[in-house]
């Protein structure tokens, strides 16, 4: 049985930072004040007469683990998609590491919702992970031996090396989610966007994902995760963005994830609030 949690194994790609190819590392060398990882200014998105996001300003200064939380229809996925250029902005601008997001695609990793693809597709698990390297390859160049080895390393990291040759439809839901994570790792990104990676997975997979998030943060990456389970927010994330069509609050989880803010986000749905408040209290006790 291969597992990842608690192995303390080196995250694939940690060396990439050390080599100094990434903007953050390069800037540290010249001791400039680093531009924020992500800077969203005045973002408004509207679908057919209906505004979905209004005037969102969000700046993530330093690499961290950010949870995006809010009720259904609050525009959480839309926020991610707008940053990635998948939905058009009515107004606003998005910068990654001080540059317009459209020019920084190679620094971005994406984990879409699991249902967004056809799992009957005739590709192997390794093929899917290899797709993560396509962004850096560019048009026409094919993945070679180096990419293959890299993809295998990413697969090994999520504990799926033995399944590399399987058709993706033969995986369980949790394994499919881990395949997506391996693909994101293969992107060698600096900032990751994950759309509900923990939705509908078993507890073991959730632990694997969580430990992976931790590792990513420790190697200096930024991860934004759309998350639906309020109880685990204080455990998982350094910072939290509360979203309901507009940004209700953003900041360190300990300060922001308060009953008051949650009420501003969710309204008077006390059952959720109580559960969340309880979780927060537990977390504070344990700290």
């Amino acid at each position: 049985m291969s597992t990842v949690q608690g192995t303390g194994s080196e995250l694939p790609g940690a060396d990439a930072v050390a080599v100094g190819k990434t903007p953050s590392a390069a800037r540290q060398a010249t001791s400039d004040p680093a531009p924020p990882v992500l800077d969203i200014h005045d973002m408004t998105v509207a679908y057919h007469r209906r505004p979905v996001l209004w005037d969102v300003d969000l700046t993530i200064e330093r690499p961290s683990l950010v949870g995006i939380v809010g009720p259904n229809g609050a525009g959480k996925s839309t926020l991610i998609k707008a940053v990635l250029g998948l939905v058009p902005l009515a107004s606003g601008k998005v910068q990654l590491f001080g540059q317009p997001a459209a020019r920084q695609r190679q620094l971005v990793g994406y984990v879409p919702q699991r249902e967004s693809v056809d799992w009957d597709f005739p590709v192997s698990v390794l093929d899917v992970v290899l797709m993560g390297t396509y962004g850096r390859l560019g048009w026409f160049r094919r993945p070679g031996r180096a990419e293959r080895e890299w993809a295998m390393e990413c697969l090994r990291h999520v504990g799926l090396a033995d399944f590399a040759r399987r058709q993706i439809g033969q995986l369980s839901g949790g394994q499919q989610q881990r395949t997506f994570l391996a693909r994101a790792l293969a992107q060698r990104a600096e900032i990751y966007f994950m759309d509900e990676p923990m939705a509908g997975v078993d507890a073991a997979t959730e632990r694997v994902i969580f430990s992976l998030l931790r590792e990513l943060r420790e190697s200096g990456k930024t991860v934004l995760v759309v998350h639906h389970d309020l109880r685990t927010v204080p455990v998982y994330f350094d910072q939290v963005a509360l979203l309901n069509m507009r940004l209700v609050a953003f900041g360190p989880t300990q300060q922001i994830f308060t009953n008051d803010n949650l009420r501003k986000t969710y309204g008077g749905r006390l059952d959720i609030l109580e559960a969340a408040g309880q979780a927060l209290a537990d977390e504070r006790r344990s700290v």
Partner: peptide
């Protein structure tokens, strides 16, 4: 939005 986020 602050008072009635659930209605938004």
């Amino acid at each position: 939005l602050v008072e009635y986020p659930d209605l938004a």
